[in-house]
Design a protein around this nucleic acid. Structure first.
Length: 114
DNA sequence: GGTGTGACGCAGG
DNA sequence: CCCTGCGCCACAC
C-alpha cells in the first residue's frame, strides 16, 4: 500500500494537532510518528499550508523551539494557556510534551511543578 | 530526472 | 549555550 493521498495525509496531521489539549505541545517528529507516514518535514509543510485551521502554536520543534514564523504569536498563546515555558522563547518539553494515546511520555493532565 | 530548499531531528564540536 | 554537518522526505524549478 502506497502512502496515503496528500489530502488524506493533511487531514490526518490536522486531526492529531486538534487533539492536542491546551497547555501541552507536540513536536513535528511526534506527530509524524503518530501519523505513521512521512517525516517531521512533511508535517511542517502541511502546517504551513493548512495549519491555519488548527492550533499550530501547540506544534513545536523537538528541542522545544517554537516555529520560526510566528514565534511571538505562539508565545502569546502559550502564556495564555499556561504552557510550561523554560525560556522566554522555549517550551519545557519535559512537562509540556504530550501524546495522543493516553498521556504517556510526559505526565498526566497535570502540568507538574516547575 | 537532477538540484535546491524547507514551520525538522540528532550527533558532534 | 552556541554553531555545523548529515540524514530525512516532499515539492518547485
Amino acid at each position: 500500500m502506497g502512502a496515503v493521498d496528500r489530502e488524506e495525509y493533511v487531514e490526518r496531521v490536522l486531526a492529531v494537532v486538534e487533539q492536542i489539549p491546551p497547555g501541552r505541545v507536540m513536536s513535528y517528529g511526534a506527530i509524524a510518528e503518530v501519523v505513521g507516514v512521512g517525516g517531521p518535514r512533511q508535517v511542517g509543510r502541511v502546517m504551513s499550508l493548512e495549519g491555519g485551521g488548527v492550533p499550530w502554536w501547540r506544534v513545536v520543534r523537538a528541542d522545544g523551539g517554537l516555529p520560526l514564523c510566528h514565534d511571538g504569536v505562539a508565545l502569546e498563546h502559550h502564556r495564555a494557556e499556561g504552557t510550561p515555558l523554560r525560556s522566554t522563547e522555549r517550551v519545557d518539553m519535559a512537562a509540556a510534551a504530550w501524546w495522543p494515546e493516553g498521556d504517556l511520555g510526559g505526565d498526566a493532565d497535570s502540568v507538574g511543578p516547575l
